[in-house]
């Protein structure tokens, strides 16, 4: 129950901080607010006992924060100019409150983060997760079942993810290079 209360608190915190990131005119403040949202998400992962998701999340969040501060704020772009969109923001706030009202009861309904989630007497072998938990160590030799799934049972997905990153780097290099950039020929 404590976990659920903490998750609800973190959820409200993240919503408030993201609204702050959207509404503020100072770019540095917006970037730091985004970082706070990321810390909230990784704390939620930790509360749900998913350290394998929390560790990459917090690390990528730090990297993104560094990138945002370095690539935007230190380049002399400090404030956002232009009118605030009051109507859009209020619609977003109403939607967020509605969504929260729908999601929070589900938190209290489901056994998130409680022992009952995985120590129930039911035999879960018919589910994929139960199969992995029972046979993962014997079949792959990997004590960390998440890694066993990522790199053995579902390694094809990991290959696709690595390809996505590779393509992103190629795209950034192609778009931002300077040497081969010349005017189009007539």
């Amino acid at each position: 129950m404590l976990t659920t209360h903490l998750m609800t608190f973190l959820m409200v915190f993240m919503i408030i901080v993201s609204l702050k990131a959207l509404m503020t005119k100072n770019l540095l403040s917006a970037a730091i607010s985004l970082g706070a949202v990321g810390i909230g998400v990784s704390l939620v992962f930790l509360l749900l006992r998913a350290p394998d998701a929390a560790v990459p999340h917090i690390v990528v969040e730090i990297l993104t924060l560094l990138l945002l501060i370095r690539a935007t704020v230190r380049r002399g772009v400090r404030v956002v100019s232009g009118q605030r969109d009051i109507f859009g923001a209020s619609v977003a706030a109403v939607l967020v409150v509605l969504l929260l009202a729908m999601v929070v009861p589900i938190f209290y309904e489901m056994p998130f983060g409680s022992e009952a989630a995985w120590t129930s007497s039911d035999d879960h072998t018919e589910l994929a997760s139960g199969y992995y938990l029972q046979n993962g160590l014997a079949q792959t030799g990997s004590a960390n079942i998440v890694t066993a799934v990522l790199l053995d049972y579902r390694a094809y997905d990991t290959l696709g993810e690595a390809t996505v990153l590779f393509t992103a780097v190629i795209g950034a290099l192609v778009l931002l290079r300077q040497r081969a950039r010349k005017p189009l020929e007539e």
Partner: peptide, 10 residues
Amino acid sequence: GHLSPGGGFA
């Protein structure tokens, strides 16, 4: 990575 949380990406 195959023993504790983390792994190649993190």
